[in-house]
Design a protein around this nucleic acid. Structure first.
Ligand SMILES: [Mg+2]
Ligand SMILES: [Mg+2]
Length: 810
DNA sequence: ATCCTCCCCTAC
DNA sequence: TAAGGTAGGGGAGGAT
């Protein structure tokens, strides 16, 4: 009790205590790093830019102070900069050097202070309240001197009692200086300060305030808090009210969780046709997948952002720019976090299709993953939830079951599972086994290696042989699922299906055939992805540049892909308004690639245990913290917490960027023969499908995919395969049910599931059960769906670990 | 009331 | 030619 009181008092004291904050920022970072090696340029106007073309629309990334005296600003077109300053020296980017200096910068900061909040590659907050005996100004001075000595670049610092004032002080300090704002000077300092100078007030807020006759902090203080709340909302209203008075209650946050990871390209995007667009989207998924894996996180929310040329907008002033655009974004939340490229691709395609956009109008595309969970937590307790793992685990079950059966029936059966008719018939004859075995209909092309060692190089070896699959069931799967499975079988599945098709052609299978063709049409027209010859590269963790395949139409002309350009080569240090173009020009802060983490990841994926053990612990630390990590960290004892934080890579705020695997699609004005596909032509849903259909379609659970597919097909009067026709013919999922209300739809679904479970023929009940458990986690799951779930749950639980059939022949 | 999605705004 | 990226925060408005 005493300690409680003490603790409470200590907290109050620390809350009341006046903090000492340093904000430190390198001066014109990108330029400074370059001209270290060119002392003759130090007094000359210099800017970093991709191009020195005096007529070009390349953008200035960073300008040194002599250049700024001429009015040169970051974000300006190089031609405008040259117009203001004809002698402006343009120097190229050097990202390796930026990284090196950023490392040195942060090492120095951490040496002087253990409360460092990274803001960007060249900027940080330090809480020096309890930082030795020196006063804050002395600490800042020492740090700046050490930075200059080590990096040969200058930094400026602001010192004040809170983050806001420290940051404002840095503005006054620049370049190569430092500034302390004592509490008693705050009012004077702020009174005439333009509101735009406050961090958080940009162009839009400035204009909005201007229209209310507010241009300075002094004027802003005249506005009541209530009025601000009314006009700007609670949070922004509070921010305005506090900031113009120099009040800022934020603390230096040493650990910052990563909330989203994504990639977008808004330059050079001019799609010829839907194939180009498709390729680009798929590559974007690959890139984002690699970034997620590089950060050791997976996400549940997938957001696709599209910039579409505004109606009537001309080709932009900026070469290959996106011009005046309408932006659209749409997201989908899935129940299971993923970093899997195939899952991302499937979902991304679905979201993209829902835009119904003419690909030629697209000027930019982005993909962002949020609702992140760290891999360790999300992978806990269950396998990677992909179709492949589902198939292979099923395969394992076959093996186990057969082994058991074989050994009990016939003692001399070898360890290798042989898919011959003899074994199968024995399995079938085994009284208590509801075997998953097929009757063995002749040759079985994929029985190679089944039951042999689990080789990682050849993962196909763990897939079940094709002859075990129930062809009717496979054919009734969503086309995308078939396509994925085909990739896993390295194209053999499609060949197998075709062969089956030919075999059955004589036997009046015309209706089935037409269904299959319809399926093919859907897939080819909307995605043009299914190709029996393609196989996907299963390896992950590499950073090979990915190039767009040039379409046949473009062969012999300029390649559609951009040469492998490092993503970081596209980077800017800052972003400003470009008044001439009347549009925003953008850049990105140099993001420090966590090389350690990425190489650790790469070596993990291809190294053995010994190498892993010799890997430095720090190298294996994730470079990204999730909420879960952070909250666990919070509960640790102080000293342990400090140790862990110290071992984290320095720039917590900085995110990873891999090499650029995204090909840049360029426009070819003279290109002819452009196909303008309406996109997507064959989408079965004229409006958005019901949410549960979308969720089931995009679920990794095969059973749910099937249900969604069945529902969709029956709605479109599509024919079901004979297997499903007989199995579901009695179910109320006919076309007229599509006009019913949601609850009726869902009660139909409930009924379907109930019967489905009662039938005990179909498939992996356990998987279905698990999928429902996952689905429940989906925050967008409706009450009705939950109701379905709770109705079916007892049945599911009763059936768990019972019969198994699923995609396999019974 | 609370959550979620789709924007917009902001910073570097 | 050029390489307009990345991420966090919050408001409006709808769904639950
Ligand atoms: Mg700077
Ligand atoms: Mg900066």
């Amino acid at each position: 009790m005493l300690s409680e009181v003490k603790g409470g008092k200590a907290n109050i004291n620390s809350d009341m205590q006046k903090h000492a904050i340093i904000h430190i920022d390198m001066d014109c970072f990108f330029v400074s790093v370059i001209i270290r090696n060119y002392p003759e340029l130090i007094d000359k106007p210099v800017a970093v830019c991709h191009s020195d073309n005096p007529k070009g629309t390349a953008e200035i990334s960073s300008a040194n102070y002599p250049a700024r005296d001429y009015g040169v600003r970051a974000g300006m077109f190089v031609r405008d900069a040259k117009a203001r300053c004809p002698h402006l020296v343009i120097v190229p980017y050097d990202f390796e050097a930026y990284e090196e200096v950023a490392d040195q910068f942060y090492s120095i900061l951490h040496k002087h202070c253990n409360k460092v909040q990274a803001l960007s590659c060249d900027e940080a907050f330090l809480d020096v309240t309890e930082c030795g005996n020196n006063n804050p100004e002395q600490i800042a001075s020492m740090i700046r001197m050490e930075i200059a000595g080590t990096t040969r670049c200058t930094a400026s610092a602001g010192i004040a009692e809170n983050l806001l004032l420290a940051r404002l002080a840095t503005r006054s300090a620049k370049p190569n200086g430092q500034c302390f704002i004592p509490s008693e000077k705050v009012d004077d300092y702020l009174n005439s300060l333009p509101v735009k100078a406050l961090p958080g007030i940009g162009h839009a807020l400035e204009e909005k305030l201007k229209s209310r006759q507010v241009q300075t902090c002094g004027q802003l203080r005249m506005v009541s808090k209530e009025a601000l709340h009314k006009d700007f909302g609670t949070k922004i209203g509070d921010m305005l009210w506090n900031y113009c008075r120099g009040i800022d209650n934020r603390m230096v946050e040493v650990v910052q969780e990563t909330k989203s990871i994504g990639a977008e390209v808004n330059w050079g995007v001019r799609f010829d046709g839907s194939t180009d667009c498709e390729n680009f989207l798929m590559n974007l998924c690959k890139e984002v997948s690699l970034r997620l894996q590089g950060c050791g996180v997976q996400g549940r929310a997938i957001t696709v952002k599209v910039r579409k040329r505004k109606k009537g907008a001309e080709e932009p002033i900026k070469f290959m720019g996106c011009g005046d655009c309408e932006t659209m974004s749409r997201s989908m939340t899935i129940p299971v976090p993923t970093d899997n490229v195939v899952s991302l691709q499937r979902i991304t395609k679905q979201i993209f299709a829902s835009f119904h956009i003419d690909v030629k109008e697209i000027r930019g595309i982005g993909l962002q993953i949020s609702k992140l969970e760290s891999v360790d937590i999300s992978r806990q307790g269950h396998e990677e939830n992909t179709l492949e793992s589902w198939l292979t685990s099923s395969s394992e079950k076959i093996k186990t079951q057969c082994k058991r059966i074989s050994s009990s029936v016939k003692q001399d059966t070898g360890e290798v599972l042989v898919a011959d008719a003899e074994c199968q018939s024995k399995c079938r004859n085994y009284e208590h086994s509801k075997s998953i075995y097929t009757n063995g209909t002749g040759s079985c092309p994929s029985e190679i290696n089944l039951g042999s060692s689990r080789s990682h190089e050849n993962r196909t070896s763990t897939l079940p042989p094709l002859c075990y699959l129930d062809i009717d069931v496979v054919k009734s799967l969503p086309q995308e699922i078939i396509s994925e499975m085909n990739d896993m079988y390295k194209g053999e599945l499609c060949a197998f299906l075709e062969k089956h098709e030919e075999d059955g052609r004589g036997n009046a299978h015309l209706s089935t055939k037409s269904t299959a063709e319809e399926n093919d049409t859907i897939s080819a027209a909307s995605y043009q992805r299914v190709n029996c010859d393609t196989s996907i590269d299963m390896t992950v963790g590499h950073s090979d540049p990915v190039k767009l395949n040039s379409s046949a139409r473009n062969e012999g002309k300029q390649p559609l892909c951009y040469p492998a350009v490092s993503m970081s080569n596209l980077a800017f240090e800052s972003k400003v308004l470009n008044p001439e173009a009347n549009e925003f020009t953008a850049g990105k802060s140099m993001t420090r690639t966590p090389c350690k983490v990425q190489s650790a990841h790469a070596s993990c994926s291809r190294s053995d245990d010994l190498q892993m053990r010799t890997t430095n612990l720090v190298d294996l630390m994730p470079n990204s913290l999730t909420q879960a990590d952070a909250s666990v960290l919070e509960q640790l004892p102080e000293d342990l917490k400090a140790d862990i934080i110290e071992s984290l890579p320095a720039h917590r705020a900085v995110n990873s960027v891999g090499n650029d695997p995204i090909g840049f699609v360029r426009a070819f004005p003279n290109n002819v023969g452009v196909q303008n596909l309406e996109y997507p032509k064959t989408h079965l849903w004229l409006e958005s499908p019901p949410k549960w259909v979308v969720m089931f379609q995009t679920s990794n659970c095969l059973i749910l995919n099937i249900i969604a597919e069945l529902y969709t097909k029956s709605r479109a009067n599509g024919l079901l395969s004979s297997t499903f026709q007989s199995m579901f013919s009695f179910l109320p999922l006919t076309s007229e049910s599509c006009s019913e209300e949601w609850d009726e739809t869902l009660s139909s679904l409930c009924e379907l599931l109930t019967q489905y479970v009662n039938l005990k023929i179909e498939s992996d009940i356990e998987e279905l059960y698990n999928c429902f458990c996952f689905l429940k986690r989906c925050s967008s799951m409706s009450h009705l769906l939950l109701e379905v779930y709770s109705n079916v749950l007892p049945l599911l639980q009763a059936s768990v670990s019972e019969n198994y059939g699923g995609i396999f022949k019974l």
